[in-house]
Amino acid sequence: MAFKSLSKSEKAYIQASLQSNSSLRGDGRSLQEYRTISLETGVAPLANGSARLNIGKNDAEAGGGTEILAAVKLEVEDIEHGERVDQGRVTCSVSCSPAAYPLASSGGLDDLQHDYSTFLDDILSHPSITPANLGIVRGKKAWLLALDLVVLSDSGNVYDAMFMAARAAIWDTKVPRTRSVEYRAQKKQEGDMDVDEEKQSGLDTRQVKAATDFELEDYWDEGIPLVGREAWPICVTLNLLSSLHFLDATSQEEAATPLRLLLVYSVASKSTPALQGMQLLGSGEVDVAQIKKLIQDGEKHASQLLAAINLKLRDEEVRLTDKARLKFASVR
């Protein structure tokens, strides 16, 4: 919890444990180890894509862990006066449940939501990663992809959890198939009225194909997945304590570490991870040489995390398809 205070001796205990030779953590993990992550996609039936993610929840426990709910909603947007003619855009917002931060004042909660939203929106709404198939009618209409996240509970490592949940929701998103519609005015010949004949020139270049609207195609599935979902970024939070760094801090560990470095990577298939964004949280300073090294370490962690999450997402996809097939069979 971001607002949890620790006593000096608790902080000292955690720091000393991390820095000891065997670097042991409060729950017996090693420095580079994540807690168990639970993930489920397709949790919100009314969203175009959704996911629920929990880090560190014990199976039998009712609560606990950092829990994030992410949902994607596609809206049709007029882009006639916008700058980008053939692409939709992505917006992202985060809201925090008051239950996640019971000690926060209402103002504090708003600040926190704003911080989270700004960081995620800056990175995720960047044109370089906007999915290519969000356009509907060139120059007229496009999908606006609204990604909403809710922090249901926070026991540390919220940023990683939010990015993972966002990735899962994006992965789950299906863009409805559309077909462009063109309107053609029908010329009517009316009786004896004297009508000026429009002269058709063979050299008229104004005659561009002008699709004005669209209709939804009737198709058996819900649509097509987003193009470039593999490259959707993922965050690795390095918690820095003097010279060492560790991953997936609990809220107590977060309270005991002075600095956190958020590194956001985007990995287009098989290539090396590209740094998409970074932020340093906390009071303290790190010199450039150390940052360089941390970025390299982060790359390694990011590709491992990515491999793991992709595997899980594919599993989820299979599970959802099976579920849909069973449902279909039972209806018939």
Binding site: A12, S20, S22, L24, D27, A60, E61
Partner: peptide, 28 residues
């Protein structure tokens, strides 16, 4: 005092083990 005594690794491991045991028992 706010200062901890010196705690060796074995004790730290034992503390972590007890913590996890309590968590498991509470979860059940």
């Amino acid at each position: 005092s706010n200062r901890n005594d010196d705690i060796d690794d074995a004790t730290r491991t034992a503390i972590a083990r007890v913590t996890n045991i309590i968590r498991i028992l509470a979860a059940h």
